[in-house]
Amino acid sequence: MDLRDCRPADRARLNRIEGDRQQRRRLMELGFVPGQILRVLGRGATGGLLLAVGDARIAVDVETCRALRVDLIRAAA
C-alpha cells in the first residue's frame, strides 16, 4: 500500500520511496528513510496529508503520497 491509503490518525512504517532520484533525495533529507514511522495528522482541503516525521511536521500532496510505499502499523480507531 502507499500513503494514499492512509487516513488521519494512522501510523505507518515507510518501506520504500518511489519516483525519480531528485524526489527521493528531497524526501530522504526531510527524514523519509525506509523504516521511519509516519503519523498521519490530518488531511488538507485538497487531499494532501499532514504528516509527523519524527518531530517534524511535513505536508505532502497526493502525488507524493503515491510514491511513499508503507506498511500500516496501527489504523485509526
Binding site: R26, L30, R57, I58, A59, V60, T64
Partner: peptide, 9 residues
C-alpha cells in the same frame, strides 16, 4: 512539476 513536500514549522 515539482511535487509538494513542505515542512510546516
Amino acid at each position: 512539476r515539482e511535487p509538494l513536500v513542505l515542512e510546516l514549522p
